[in-house]
Design a protein around this nucleic acid. Structure first.
Length: 506
RNA sequence: CGGGCUGUAGCGCAGCUUGGUUAGCGCGCUUGACUGGGGGUCAAGAGGUCGACGGUUCGAAUCCGUCCAGCCCGACCA
């Protein structure tokens, strides 16, 4: 039997990518499906990951002048009715609260009672409830800009859900800002888009493209929607964050007005932007491998796990103490705004099983310490970005001295690997035939090949865009911000201002 | 909201066609032994109102009806 090929996750990515994803989530103990359809239970390891993301992002928002606030979960129905496009975009996926009491029913069960005079909508996003507050908070040009962020949960009644990627309820942050001028609001929209791109690249080690959405993919009610798009390992695109320039659409619908220096009453210009727990899905699909999750050190809840090997020692306590001393020496070190997080795993279970459990959780560095190591004052080290076989004995003092640079190297390596994967699978395509071939996989493929990113000119016709989506399942992911050379649309022969990024997406 | 399928132990399933002692199996869990630096072997043990209600029957997990829940495939989506 070819035992060497055994992987911790079955099936592998090439065998069945969607199933592989589910198994990684389960094996890493990130989350599970809940009894409530479409909702997930985020388990401690997944929650710790989200907390680390929150911590870094929150710092970036504060550094760009934002303050946190919290607004209600419920939105009165009439609020939502104010902005026509916005309503149309979200109406079909809203959860609605119509009663406020339960009473014993005829069959012994509980039945809703006390019908509300006005139904409440569980927020799918908070433009309307925050806009209402803004209309009261803003009176003068001196109140602007108003820069607010909230960490919250939202509900979108999705038909088909997948842990982290699309759930009926998800956690996110939503920034909402109001500005005196159009120019300032537009600049702010781009500023926050870049905050997201920086976070994805520097903290998540996930390279992303930045660009604008076409009208078809725009946020309901927005003038312009910008996004960051990452390439997953099945070459599909994941929209990982969005930033919207809302113009005066919402300020006019909600009466967000200020009095300027000349005493004129003017509508403010607003923006909104958000990232969600979907980032965790992106993290998995960017870095995880056939042995499970792989965490970039800057987000890892645990940087180093130490496993004492005590079974064949006469003095297990000495080994445990040696491990604690090692942990103490590591914990005092700083790594990107945190102390090194060390866990000593002295659970009473078999060594192989224990070791694999940390591989599957994606911990960057695993350390085994047994009697032989202790005698030599060394540690046995494995890195998650290398093969599980490549363990290495290192003198203890050297390991302590070099840990942060090792973590840095892992972080950078993950990013570089993801970036070259994206580059290898991004092609400029100039004919309709090539475009169709690129996005068509052979029949019967267990894991369809999704082509990758196609950089292709386009005349901008929305009907044609929809036709391509219907026929090939391919959409414009973004219009790159950096622009490009004008050319010819391969579908119509019409002129095109620049190449767009096309891909299949989540 | 249209089409298909499934509800039996914590999880995954068999049994149902052709009703019949005490409802089985795998994983997991607990205990013990041998083990042990790649997730091992063996043994013992705990754990189930068979989705709910009603009907047929001497007898229902099994047949019939109603209901409930979930999953998959379509249209929609951070």
């Amino acid at each position: 039997m070819a035992k060497a090929a055994k992987t911790a996750i079955t099936p592998t990515r090439t065998e069945n990518y969607p199933e592989w994803y589910q198994q990684v989530v389960r094996a890493a103990d990130l989350a599970e499906n809940s009894p409530v359809r479409g909702c997930m239970v985020i388990k401690p390891w997944g929650c710790a990951l989200w907390e680390n993301m929150q911590h870094v992002l929150d710092g970036m928002f504060k550094a760009t002048g934002h303050k946190n606030a919290y607004f209600p979960l419920f939105i009165p129905k009439r609020f939502l009715e104010k902005e026509a496009e916005h309503v149309e975009g979200f109406a079909k996926e809203c959860a609605v609260v119509t009663h406020h009491r339960l009473e014993a029913g005829p069959d012994g069960g509980l039945v809703p009672a006390g019908e509300l005079e006005e139904p409440l909508i569980v927020r799918p996003t908070s433009e309307m409830i925050i806009g209402d507050a803004f209309s009261r908070w803003i009176e003068s040009y001196r109140d602007l800009p108003l820069l607010i962020n909230q960490w919250a949960n939202v509900v979108r009644w999705e038909m088909r859900t997948r842990l982290f990627l699309r759930t009926s309820e998800f956690l996110w942050q939503e920034g909402h800002t109001a500005h005196a001028t159009e120019e300032e609001a537009r600049e702010h929209t781009i500023r926050m888009l870049n905050v997201y791109a920086d976070f994805a690249r520097d903290t998540m080690a996930m390279p992303v493209l930045t660009g604008e959405k076409t009208a078809a993919e725009r946020f309901p009610g927005a003038v312009k929607t910008y996004c960051i798009e990452g390439m997953m390992q099945d070459r599909k695109a994941l929209q990982a964050g969005t930033s919207h320039f809302l113009g005066q659409n919402f300020s006019k619908a909600q009466d967000i007005v200020y009095i300027d220096e000349n005493g004129d009453r003017l509508h403010a210009w607003t923006t909104s932007w958000g990232v969600s727990t979907r980032l965790i899905g992106g993290l998995i699909m960017t870095h995880a491998d056939d042995d499970g999750l792989v965490l970039p050190p800057r987000l890892a809840p645990v940087h180093v796990v130490i496993m004492p090997i005590t079974f064949k020692s006469d003095e297990p306590d000495k080994i445990i103490n040696y491990c604690h001393k090692l942990a103490d020496d590591l914990r005092v070190q700083a790594f990107h705004g945190r102390h090194i997080e060390v866990e000593i795993d002295d659970r009473d279970m078999r060594g192989g099983e224990k070791s694999w459990s940390w591989v599957k959780k994606g911990v960057p560095v695993r350390v085994e310490v047994g009697p032989r190591d202790m005698a030599a004052d060394s540690v046995f080290v494995a890195r998650r970005d290398l093969s599980p076989k490549e363990k290495q004995g290192i003198p203890r003092s050297e390991f302590i001295a070099n840990l942060t640079s090792m973590l840095e190297e892992i972080q950078q390596g993950l990013h570089d690997r993801a970036l070259s994967f994206r580059e290898e699978n991004t092609h400029t395509i100039d004919s309709e035939t090539d475009f169709r071939d690129f996005f068509t996989s052979p029949a019967g493929e267990p894991t369809p090949i999704h082509g990758g990113f196609a950089l292709t000119h386009f005349c901008g016709d929305s009907e044609l865009e929809k036709k391509i989506k219907d026929e090939l399942g391919v959409t414009v992911r973004c219009i790159p911000l950096e622009g490009g050379e004008p050319g010819t649309c391969p579908f119509t022969g019409q002129p095109s201002e620049q190449r767009l990024v096309w891909a299949k997406s989540y």
